[in-house]
Nucleic acid binder design. Sequence first.
DNA 1: CTGAAAGCGCTTACAG
DNA 2: CTGAAAGCGCTTACAG
Lengths: 339, 339
Amino acid sequence: MASIKDVAAEAGVSVATVSRVLNGHPSVSEDARRRVTAAVTALGYRPNAVARSLRTDQTRTLGLVISDVLNPYFTELARSVEEEARALGYSVIIGNADERPDLQDHHVRTLLDRRIDGLLVSPTDGGSPLMLDAARAGTPMVFVDRWIPGVDVPVVRADGREAVRDLVAHLHALGHRRLAIIAGPAATTTGRERVDAFREALADFGLELPGAYIGQGDFQAESGRRVTEGFLDLPEPPEVVFAADNLMVLGALDAVRARGLRVPDDIALAAFDDIRWFVHTDPPITAIAQPTGELGRAAVRALIDRVEGRTGQSVTLPARLVVRRSCGAHPTAVQRSTS
Amino acid sequence: MASIKDVAAEAGVSVATVSRVLNGHPSVSEDARRRVTAAVTALGYRPNAVARSLRTDQTRTLGLVISDVLNPYFTELARSVEEEARALGYSVIIGNADERPDLQDHHVRTLLDRRIDGLLVSPTDGGSPLMLDAARAGTPMVFVDRWIPGVDVPVVRADGREAVRDLVAHLHALGHRRLAIIAGPAATTTGRERVDAFREALADFGLELPGAYIGQGDFQAESGRRVTEGFLDLPEPPEVVFAADNLMVLGALDAVRARGLRVPDDIALAAFDDIRWFVHTDPPITAIAQPTGELGRAAVRALIDRVEGRTGQSVTLPARLVVRRSCGAHPTAVQRSTS
DNA sequence: CTGAAAGCGCTTACAG
DNA sequence: CTGAAAGCGCTTACAG
């Protein structure tokens, strides 16, 4: 592969001059610029980003560590992150933690070794020493969706409190009183917050959230199935199961189907995170939708602000309830969205 | 951030010795090794992968350019690719082309500039000069799922011919005679092959595939909707619509639903690529499943073979039909899978 | 406007 | 077993 030296030789100038025209430096004669450009195309020269990074101490690359690529929510997040980053002149390298702290650490380490300019993380756990150290050491960092309390890092996320309250109001209006939740891992903020929001909303309606109605999931489909089976085995099963993410509701659906039960007649279902398929499931699933694209873009902007020395801000956007049929027929007054 | 010099100073040895212990070189005294290790942990030193890459001319990184991250098929492919690569000591950087040739080129260029060791591509089109040049210039490369004819690059893919024939047999047995297809872009191999396989299978049953029954899609949901609307507007609409990927069938479902029609009573639906949600759609969707994980792993092995100087082989794995209810009730004899 | 030279952080023959 | 030194491909003050 042709190097800058080859280009310099071909153009009859020094490598310094080649570098200057490559980087659009103003003080280069028109003649030199023309010859360099010609040499570049003649040789099919492409600058070596590795060498450039070593020299400039910047990679124009952002790292994104997501909890699970198989989850459409994160996939959409990743897409908007890459899009915004690209628009701002950065590349992004994605690491998939698969909800495993060890894998998460592996990716953080790899990304740090590659000297990415900034790190976007949706932590799978309470934070490993590695990640905490990186944050303290001053690596530009921003948390998206999930975050780690007590660390001085901006957080970009959706607040689902209002939407969860709307959901509970909807369920209550439909006559449901025994509501259960499939929670995410307690080590994650979203795992805890969604249960808290649910519990508080229930309290507003004079309802309780008994321990038996809190199933411990891990944001993966299989745990949704397991927890739902447990609910169905209860002497008094819940009337509604609210899954804290879109994968666990898939598992819940599997479990309900395996028992030959029907939704919403025998049991109602709802989920956090909305995906396109929910319109076409049997029945269409009521869900809480996050402004995913906006979150991704805001996170990138906050991170790049930090990378470039500005102060990146935390951002919290509201989530919203999308009512469908999985919780039962409902008065049109409550209806926020039909599809 | 501490550099190798700092470690050398701290350990009281030369940078050469530090490098040797870092790379597990045998000829280092036990004493030196101990002091270096101690210095490394004391300083929290992490080797700079950028510098190492520049020096060794290898990045231990593979590039993966997929057609669409929002498509669960590619997401699963990406996951298995990363997994296998990691097991073999490589990282992977994913580029999402969003089915756009220009974006694909952008990512190929970026990846090449970063001097990735090898490139895995699922081309969105017939191949840009950039990609063709890279292949000719000897960049280790492997095509997955889709490929470009006439280029000397191994191809790892699924052959859906048998499964498509099984699908047509299934449809024929159910009494369907007017079968239509939503095709992928003619510029992609999968866009063409699936139509060909469909046409051939129809011919085996004495059926034709009229031009009006071939809708031109682009592998995205919206095109599935548009094409399906066109089919429904036909004086004689098809009895079955077969979508060449899982996103377009989503659009088809949207279109059918918008007209108030029912599947399979009014129109039958089937798709290429199986996803977990198909079990829970209304009705469950009959699909052709690819051995996605296997494809990803085989592609990585073939690519790493090339990277490391061995001859990476092309691999073709069979796809299989998964019968559900979207094409109508069916004799259990034909049934390959229920869920 | 232009070039010679230093240096980014590593690895690796080459000597000893 | 160990170190001095060269060099990977760039960028960028410094002189001119």
